[in-house]
Design a protein around this nucleic acid. Structure first.
Lengths: 254, 254
DNA sequence: CTGTCTTGTTAGAACTTCTAGCGAAGACGA
DNA sequence: TCGTCTTCGCTAGAAGTTCTAACAAGACAG
């Protein structure tokens, strides 16, 4: 009795080789998810229909319930896949980049490319959540991994401009002294606050300013990216990529 | 023959007084939308059901089609309402704030309060879009108004640190010279690029650096806010508000 | 070969959106 | 006051969805 349990753990995980039946099951699962992804990409997650997928696969409606407990289960699996996919590209980007500031730039580039390659996949993670939903432990673990890669990469970067006074901008007004503001109270607070609640970073041992810089990097990237991918810059004429790279540079040494 | 047309233009707009019938219609419309909002707030937009609303109002299913052409029409109306609501709070915040840097802070505070007051309303605008959707002209007009308020308010602010080297942070590393990076090429590009494509700002006459600062302000605010409201900071222990105010200050003079 | 386990099937309940057509009740002009 | 005209709410019903239940037929292990 498989009971449409976790449909993913078929091949790997268990030590023994996959039986032909298991391989078949895994393949059908993959095909279902493939169709689901395509459906989501073209009409959004709310248009995901098990029935339509079944028909397109030459199966009859309820057959899919042998593979997924229901529509929500399939969607949850796709979300988990999206998280895994992002974690993988992040790890890959961090691994291939040369050490130093290039690493975090590579991460930013990878994030944007990943998001633009499949906007709806981005929204599976960062889009509208259902009100009561709380992510299962499996997913929060992957999210933590992603943050860890970011923190690790940032930890190897020589200090750029601090998040308050943040990096590349030619428009340094001679009258305004960027450093004047750097001793404002709230920001010291933020440093110590983030360092004190290090749990968000999985108790990453990075120094406070790195914690803060990485987190701010993350939010600034998503600030541009989420608006761009959602189409809020559409018809505005300018190139979102330039805004993005500017924000990337805002936290990096020249 | 009303044909479930634009259900909103009942009272105002036309010069003559509203007939009792028109007032009744407007009231029913409002009640429908009220139920819809509540339903969305508790279960998300995908759970919006005309049938359920009708039942809860003591009406029978198809009666609602006298007021809205369909589910999508109702949702579109709610989205437009959300835009109008944000534009209103923005205008109010800009109007009551004292001139100077306090204005943009008031805008940021208003934005966050508005978002937290009803997260699903925030997502109606900034959440997952349906792939093919293009906003009608009515909505892009409101969006432009919102940007205009932001730009107007920013235009009255004395220059803070430029977006590259951006404001309040105590962690100014003595070794890193924030100004060193300020002449990097890409950023000059961005200034001129944004100024050249001024259409995104409704041809707002603000100087290039103001355009850039306002736009970056906007993305940074949404960067923190969207992640927070979507629950991505949940269980992380730190206080998102501090991150938010830090980003607010990042573009403001001390 | 036999029994179990897995898969796909159909039937059907309970939903949903949305259309068609009927009847009643209010608004308005003569 | 009367008749007409518009608007409104209803029921019936088509087409779609998710998902359950019971059944038939294949594949695998002993």
């Amino acid at each position: 009795m498989t009971d449409a349990g976790t449909a993913t753990d078929v091949g790997a995980g268990t030590g023994r080789a996959a039986s032909p039946r298991e391989r078949y099951r895994a393949q059908v699962c993959a095909e279902i998810k493939q169709h689901a992804r395509q459906q989501i990409a073209t009409a959004g997650a709310s248009a995901l229909s098990l029935n339509a997928i079944a028909k397109r696969m030459g199966l009859s409606g309820p057959a899919l319930y042998r593979y997924f407990a229901g529509r929500d289960a399939l969607l949850t699996e796709l979300i988990a896949d999206a998280y895994r996919s992002l974690a993988d590209t992040f790890r890959a980007a961090a691994a291939t980049a040369e050490p130093g500031a290039g690493g975090v730039v590579a991460l930013a580039d990878a994030l944007r490319a990943w998001a633009l390659a499949d906007p709806q996949r981005y929204f599976l993670i960062y889009g509208t959540p259902v009100p009561g939903y709380h992510a299962p432990e499996e997913i929060t673990a992957i999210a933590a991994e992603i943050m860890e890669v970011l923190l690790d990469t940032f930890d190897g970067v020589p200090d750029g401009p601090p998040p308050g006074a943040t990096g590349a901008d030619p428009d340094a007004d001679p009258d305004a002294d960027p450093n004047a503001a750097l001793d404002a109270d709230p920001d010291t607070d933020l440093h110590t606050h983030l360092a004190a609640h290090r749990q968000w970073a999985g108790d990453h041992p990075a120094p406070p300013r790195t914690l803060r810089r990485a987190l701010t990097y993350w939010t600034r990237l998503h600030g541009v990216l989420s608006l761009e991918v959602a189409g809020h810059f559409e018809g505005m004429g300018f190139d979102p990529e330039r805004l993005y790279t500017a924000e990337v540079k805002s936290l990096l040494p020249a």
